[in-house]
Design a protein around this nucleic acid. Structure first.
Lengths: 309, 309
DNA sequence: ATGAACGCATAGGCTGTGCCTATGCCTCTG
DNA sequence: CAGAGGCATAGGCACAGCCTATGCGTTCAT
């Protein structure tokens, strides 16, 4: 399902937000480093694509119409997530010799780090961050070898020589498409879940290991083989949504889909699927400088969330 | 602050997700209605912009690298919000004579309706929805005049002749930039809040009225004039983030900013800033067809959220 | 072993979008 | 009444992106 082309031009929506903020097309143009006529035409074609008037142009500026306010309101989250994406990408490029080297598991890197990096930039704007992603063992190695200043891992199997602090919670969830038989009762037994082939990552994935580990904790010893093995979380989600079969993913990965009901969560009786996410660093070598800032930010995020429950 | 151009090309990221899902560049190209060479080049330039390899190209397909999985993971929420945006835009265009006419307050239309519309499309794909946004009085008029099948309003001042059901909660929050003096203590008295000039919407805005109403409930009678009046939520947020002064906004509008700490919430002692959001329809004329579906979806969202607390 | 099928890369050529500068018109203000 | 600020229009240029055609490498079946 390709994205509707109507919304693919982020720069135009960004321009619209700038007009809302600055009160005139010309000022918005300047803020974006383009000429006023260019901005004017961009907004005009944006309006044409949207199909309704978004701006009220007066001789002393431009204001959003009601429809314009709505569109701006919907566009803002898109741009906010795009900023997250950009922050993540920046941390991936290693060409700047970053002062702060972070190693993180995929779950942390995907769902939590971008927001932390943006907060970090607010605290120390000049810190270039280099991110390496891998499984927990890999991250631990990087930190122990001092090739990373700070690591973030799932808590299972903490190696020696590392100090740590819990910074967030993760939870595995079993999800199915709304049409799936399990979607109605919303609960299955551990044995049933283990005996059913799932859409999953390749074997060796941390999520898959954690899933089997949790079920073993409930006394399960036999597991059905995977129904389908796919290379990415997105692909697994797409397969599950398409009704191929149940899947097990991090709660962070399916939050939005649960909200919009494109996926339905199914509880697994008597199995604890929670796990803590931890920051780690070489014991005795307390993080300093930007690493300390990032640790503070990450820790604050867990207390912040606790506030809101 | 304009969006970094690195992430402005949504179509390329969408293509990347399709590759992750379908396992080959050619199939992704076909899914997007373009030729294989075009897709190949798009992905190549995307990799150049990102600065790291995202795909592992083999002779029988393409897989994401670790970095590619990360980028895909960050891009997915951007695209998901873009789909929301598109759903909203679709509902704004009135050229199709929609079978379902919805009138909603700005808060509901901005933050809740897109997800509902997407869920509605899953239930009845052929329903074209037309959305009108306005303040609560305006919405009530539309519904009473039967120019809208269903309305969504803040609950203050329910007019006669309308039946209703609570579908969501809203809450006003006082926010300041992290550097503001109030950010440290995180709490002010009602009198102090009322006596301080705020960045706000034009007078007559529902948010502003609700704020003053809530403070009057706490015995406050005198209000400072606004520090700055702006035309949109985005503009107000930008001003607050920029440190111009405190602002009062819906919790939904600042959720992301609170999470990333670009804004800090300040409690107001002894003032109840909650309000219910209600669906309304002409009493006696129980919603049927798509209107009933939408009502069910909206109602489900409130119980769903309750589940998760 | 060998050809067919599949998949990605490269080459060449074209179209159209988007941007810039210059200019005109309108309105509010002093 | 003149000037400033702001948006729209016009004309012209550059480049980005797409398509078709083709080539090369790998895999699989006969």
């Amino acid at each position: 399902m390709p994205l509707p082309s109507r919304v693919s031009d982020l720069a135009s929506f960004d321009l619209l937000l700038s007009v809302a903020e600055l009160g005139s097309i010309g000022r918005a143009a300047k803020a974006h480093g383009m000429s006023q006529p260019s901005a004017s035409e961009r907004l005009r074609t944006l309006e044409a694509r949207v199909g309704v008037a978004l701006l009220e142009r007066t001789s002393r500026g431009a204001r959003l119409t009601t429809a314009g306010q709505l569109v701006a309101g919907w566009a803002a989250p898109v741009l906010a997530r795009a900023v997250d994406l950009d922050a993540g990408i920046t941390s991936l490029r290693a060409d700047r010799h970053g002062q702060l080297r972070v190693a993180a598991s995929l779950t942390v890197a995907e769902y939590l780090l971008p927001a932390w990096l943006i907060a970090l930039r607010a605290v120390s704007p000049d810190t270039a961050t280099v991110l390496t992603a891998g499984n927990s063992v890999h991250v631990a190695e990087q930190v122990l070898a001092e090739r990373a200043d700070l690591g973030f891992i799932e808590s299972t199997g903490m190696p020696q020589g590392l100090a740590s602090r819990v910074v967030a919670k993760d939870e595995l969830v079993l999800v199915v498409a709304p049409g799936h038989p399990w979607a109605r009762r919303r609960r299955v037994t551990a044995a049933k879940a283990a005996g059913t082939p799932l859409v999953s990552r390749e074997s060796g994935s941390g999520t898959r290991q954690a899933w089997e580990h949790a079920l073993r904790g409930a006394g399960i010893t036999e597991f059905a083989g995977p129904l389908l093995e796919m290379s990415s979380t997105t692909a697994i989600k797409a397969a599950a949504i398409g009704g191929i079969g149940p899947a097990v993913l991090s709660i962070h990965a399916v939050e939005a889909d649960l909200k919009t009901r494109t996926l339905v969560r199914v509880e697994v009786s008597d199995v604890d699927l929670h796990r803590a996410l931890r920051a780690v660093w070489p014991s005795g070598r307390t993080p300093r400088g930007p690493a300390s800032d990032l640790l503070t930010i990450a820790t604050r995020s867990v207390t912040h969330r606790a506030d809101r429950r």
